[in-house]
Simulated scan of single mutants.
Amino acid sequence: MPNSRQLTLQNSIRYFFAAIFWIPVVFFSLLLVRNTLPYFSFNQQFSFIEERAVLFLKPAYKASFYIHIFAGMFCIIAALTQFSSYILKKRKAIHIWMGKIYVVVVIVLGAPTGLYMSFFAKGSFWERALFMFMALYWLYTTIKGLQSIKQKNILAHKNWMIRSYSMAMTAVTFRVYHIIFYYYGADHLFNYEISLWISVLGNMLIAEYFIFRKSKKYLNTFNHLKIIRS
């Protein structure tokens, strides 16, 4: 059995690696929100809007765009509260209510508008198909997360919401990869496509890694308790 010094060292290492992961996540999430807010001035002189000027003549597309970026911005901030152990332990009401709002925003606003906009996405058929997959996967994982907590299956709830959050975070990771490839001199269209694919597939793999780690830890704890009680 590990002594107190070993446990302290293990905890310190765990907190260190958690900080390495979460500090950039929080920073780039807040940066995305900051960069999204100017769009709500409804000024048309943004490169994204100028590239899609014809689409923005369609009221449905224009409304979907503003609803989608609002939903994405909110979900990224709301999700940060869902993975805080302090909030979960000390301010559980915040976790519950922000979680409920997150689910509603994804199901009613974020995923449907994302699915609609995917039909007009830049790139080839495969990029549009990927955007469709993202919207449907985001919707599906969020619904499964809601169903599992209603069934009081906390482990399944955590796992499905990690997957849901991984899709919300593609808005952040895509921009990070895009900047990296831009500085390496990648062609604009290639940069867009490769950043998109790495962001989606990378986020899914990272989510599954976290789920594997959490599930393994849960099973080890469960087996340890069985041994003690037997």
Rank of each mutant, 00 (worst) to 15 (best):
L225H: 11
I180D: 01
L37A: 13
I206C: 06
R229T: 12
Y61P: 03
P59M: 05
A121Y: 11
I194D: 03
I194S: 04
N203F: 04
K89Q: 15
F56L: 05
I76T: 02
M134P: 00
V33F: 13
I69S: 07
T170S: 08
I23V: 14
W160A: 02
L189H: 12
W22C: 09
Y137S: 09
V54A: 15
T142N: 14
I179E: 13
F65K: 01
F181H: 08
G123P: 00
I87P: 02
G202F: 08
V106E: 05
F210M: 11
A71D: 03
I94F: 13
F212T: 05
G145N: 01
V108H: 08
G202L: 05
I94T: 10
I101S: 13
R52F: 11
M73K: 13
K216P: 01
L139D: 07
L189W: 14
F46W: 13
L136P: 00
A129Q: 04
P2S: 10
A93P: 00
N35F: 10
H157V: 02
I162G: 03
F174M: 08
V104W: 13
S12G: 08
L7R: 09
Y102G: 00
L136V: 15
S47D: 14
K226G: 10
M161Q: 07
S148M: 10
S166F: 05
V104R: 08
I180M: 06
K144S: 11
F21T: 15
Q10W: 11
P38H: 10
F70Q: 12
K226A: 11
F181M: 08
G114A: 05
L155M: 12
Y183K: 06
I13N: 04
K100G: 02
N191S: 07
I228Q: 14
F181P: 00
I143K: 08
Y165N: 04
I77S: 06
I198P: 00
A129C: 02
F83P: 00
M132Y: 09
Y39R: 09
A71T: 02
R175D: 01
H224C: 06
I107Y: 08
F17H: 13
V108M: 10
A121G: 00
Q82P: 00
L196D: 00
S47Q: 14
F120K: 08
Y140Q: 09
I194H: 05
I67R: 14
T142W: 12
A207Q: 04
T8I: 06
F40P: 03
Y66T: 05
I227P: 00
V26W: 11
R163K: 12
N153I: 01
M98V: 12
W22T: 15
I162E: 01
E193Y: 05
S215E: 12
A121T: 03
W138R: 09
L225G: 02
M1L: 07
V33K: 02
M204I: 15
P38C: 04
N3F: 03
S230W: 09
K216W: 13
F56H: 05
E127K: 01
Q151S: 11
V105T: 14
P112R: 12
L9T: 11
T81D: 06
F16R: 06
A19N: 06
S29P: 01
K62Q: 14
D187K: 07
F70Y: 15
